[in-house]
Amino acid sequence: MFLRTVPDSMDPAVVAAVDAELDRVAAEHRVCIRLAIESGSRAWGFPSPDSDYDCRFVYVASLETYLSPWRTRDVIETPLVGLLDVNGWDLAKALRLLVQGNAVIVEWLMSPIVYRGDEAFRTRLREVAAEVADRDRVARHYLHLGERQWRLFERNGGLKKVFYALRPAMALRWLREHPGAAVAPMHLPTLLSQCELPADFVDAVTELTALKSRTREMGTGAVPAPIAAFIATEFHTAADTFASRGPRDLTAARAITDEFFRTEALAVG
Rank of each mutant, 00 (worst) to 15 (best):
F2Y: 08
F2P: 05
F2R: 03
R4P: 13
T5F: 09
V6Q: 05
D8N: 11
P12C: 09
V14C: 14
V15R: 11
A17T: 08
A17Q: 10
V18K: 06
V18P: 02
D19F: 03
D23F: 09
R24K: 14
V25W: 00
A26P: 06
A26M: 08
E28Q: 15
H29P: 00
R30L: 07
R30V: 02
R34D: 00
S39N: 13
S39P: 02
A43G: 03
P49G: 14
P49F: 10
P49S: 12
D50L: 10
Y53V: 02
C55N: 11
C55T: 14
F57Y: 07
V58G: 00
V60G: 00
R73N: 01
D74V: 04
L80E: 08
V81F: 08
G82H: 15
G82R: 15
L95R: 02
R96G: 00
L97H: 01
L98N: 01
A103S: 15
V104A: 02
V104F: 02
E107W: 01
E107Q: 03
L109M: 02
M110F: 06
S111L: 09
P112R: 08
I113C: 00
R116Y: 05
G117A: 14
D118R: 12
E119H: 10
E119G: 12
F121Q: 02
T123S: 06
L125P: 00
R126T: 05
E127V: 05
V128E: 12
E131D: 07
E131C: 07
E131I: 03
D134G: 03
R135S: 06
D136M: 03
D136E: 07
D136P: 01
H141P: 05
L143K: 06
G146E: 03
Q149Y: 15
Q149V: 11
W150M: 07
R155K: 14
K161R: 13
A165W: 09
L166V: 03
R167E: 01
A171H: 15
A171D: 05
R176I: 05
E177I: 03
E177V: 01
H178L: 06
H178V: 01
P179D: 07
A182Y: 10
P185Q: 05
P185S: 05
M186L: 10
M186T: 05
P189Q: 08
L191F: 11
L192I: 06
S193D: 14
Q194H: 04
A199L: 07
A199P: 01
A204P: 07
V205H: 11
T206N: 12
L208C: 06
L208M: 15
T209L: 07
T209I: 11
A210R: 14
A210D: 04
R214G: 03
R214I: 13
R214C: 10
M218D: 08
M218I: 13
G221W: 09
P224L: 06
A225Q: 13
P226C: 09
A228P: 01
A238H: 09
A239F: 10
A243I: 15
S244V: 15
R248M: 03
L250A: 13
T251Y: 15
R254I: 04
A255W: 09
A255E: 03
I256D: 00
F260H: 04
R262T: 11
T263Q: 11
T263Y: 13
A265D: 09
A267K: 06
A267W: 14
V268E: 10
V268K: 15
